[in-house]
């Protein structure tokens, strides 16, 4: 998927989550789509392209999250860097292996936020994040499989030869 198209798709997904949860009156559940997108980019894209896409998403994500500026983004960047290290090491296809990787990514995301809030002298925020670690890990693992499959399918629709070896004249 081209850079701009992926950015638009990711933003639509993230904005849709906020609108949907608000419309349904769901108050305590979140799909953690920014984390899911960071994990997808880390595992599926090459390091530089995925990284630049994530950079382009960080500021809008800060707006959507409305938290303490920079903290959520920093945790996303760490998740991306670690997931980038796993690229090629995790089993192909969005199945159990990638769900486990996503769970680890979510755990890391929460731990980085807890650490940053503690460093900023905000223990109440650390506690609020710590409360949600277990549900977040479970939700991110499940949602990553679904969203990962959807995004991969979209990738193949836009670029059918993606990920396949092709013969080229040199």
């Amino acid at each position: 998927m081209p850079f701009v198209v992926f950015w638009i798709v990711a933003m639509v997904l993230i904005l849709l989550e906020g609108a949907l949860l608000s419309s349904l009156g769901v108050v305590t559940l979140a799909l953690h789509l920014p984390v899911v997108v960071a994990i997808y980019l880390g595992i599926e894209r090459d390091f530089a392209t995925g990284g630049l896409l994530l950079v382009a998403l960080l500021i809008p994500v800060e707006w959507v999250v409305a938290g303490v500026p920079g903290v959520y983004s920093m945790a996303l960047a760490v998740v991306y860097l670690v997931m980038g290290g796993l690229r090629g090491q995790v089993q192909q296809g969005w199945g159990v292996a990638r769900a486990l990787a996503a769970g680890i990514g979510s755990l890391l995301h929460s731990l980085v936020m807890v650490g940053l809030f503690l460093g900023m002298g905000e223990p109440s925020l650390s506690v609020a994040v710590a409360w949600m670690i277990v549900p977040s890990v479970v939700i991110v693992a499940a949602v990553t499989v679904v969203v990962g499959r959807g995004l991969s399918r979209l990738d193949r629709m836009v670029d059918p030869r993606r990920g396949r070896s092709r013969l080229e004249f040199s």
């Binding site: 390091f47 530089a48 990284g51 630049l52 994530l54 950079v55 960080l58 500021i59 800060e62 303490v68 500026p69 920079g70 903290v71 983004s73 920093m74 996303l76 960047a77 991306y80 860097l81 809030f117 900023m120 905000e122 925020l125």
Partner: peptide, 19 residues
């Protein structure tokens, strides 16, 4: 890329009024 990824959140943190 790695540098920019870390620099953007750091800048946001530094330029904000904390929590």
């Amino acid at each position: 890329t790695a540098l920019v990824l870390v620099a953007v959140p750091l800048l946001l943190m530094v330029s904000s009024a904390g929590a």
